[in-house]
Nucleic acid binder design. Structure first.
Lengths: 125, 125
DNA sequence: GTAGCAGTTGGAGTTAACTCCAAGTCAAGC
DNA sequence: GCTTGACTTGGAGTTAACTCCAACTGCTAC
């Protein structure tokens, strides 16, 4: 698969794909004789994983560390598991925070609805 | 309240508090005769609101728009309500995404646990 | 064989959201 | 009246994560 094919499929720009490779989120992408990247299904799956983790805010640096551990082989299985567990915990906290903020917004919107219904009373902020 | 008191109370640096004021997230903070900021409880409540919204990723720009609408008075009640509803919807989507990613991480961690238990088999990534 | 297009590189530029700094002011204590 | 420490300002610097660019290469079609 060429970079533009992967780009379309994963909805990530070629620039970003090259950037991810450069910073170590995607190692050893195959090249054709002419030096053009030739992505495998495996590469795509990894890119989707990166995309998913990035979309919820895992930093490039954390992902870089994860793949660096990966390159060091089986003996880093536990370290990788712990890294994932740590990030999972942080995400869980963000999840609860998000839940609370959604509730707060719902309440605020309901207060707006009341203010709008009752002769446009003003709010504090 | 002085800026350092608010800083401690809200756990936001004085620089950030001044920055928020400068970009329009906190208008007309009172000053003492000597020109020193003197925050009210109301200001603090607003800062907490900003902090809460920022912590889940609402941009400074969106919050700036919200408070700008606010300054234009009651006739913007509906516009503000709609702005909040729009952001709520986006947060809801991020919420679902986060939920899915948590599940994915849980699964991946369970795969790691299996690999670690069964003689350190290696994974794909 | 040459036009055109997709790909390559290294490196510069951008954006959001802070964060830091230097130079100055002011009120309080000695 | 002088030091000290918290505060002020405008503006420069930082960081993460892209995003863009110029100059170049190498297939493919005519």
């Amino acid at each position: 698969m060429t970079i533009s094919e992967v780009s379309k499929r994963c909805n990530i720009s070629p620039d970003t794909l090259r950037y991810y490779e450069k910073v170590g989120l995607l190692s050893d992408v195959n090249r054709t004789a002419g030096g053009i990247r030739d992505y495998t299904e495996q590469d795509c799956a990894q890119i989707e994983f990166v995309k998913c983790m990035r979309s919820v805010g895992l930093s490039i640096e954390i992902l870089r560390k994860y793949f660096e551990l990966f390159k060091r082989g089986k003996r880093t299985l536990k370290a990788r598991r712990e890294l994932l567990a740590t990030e999972r915990k942080a995400l869980q906290e963000r999840f609860v925070e998000l839940q609370d903020t959604l509730k707060r917004l719902d309440y605020k919107i309901s207060v707006y609805d009341k203010a709008i219904a009752s002769k446009d009373k003003e709010l504090k902020f």
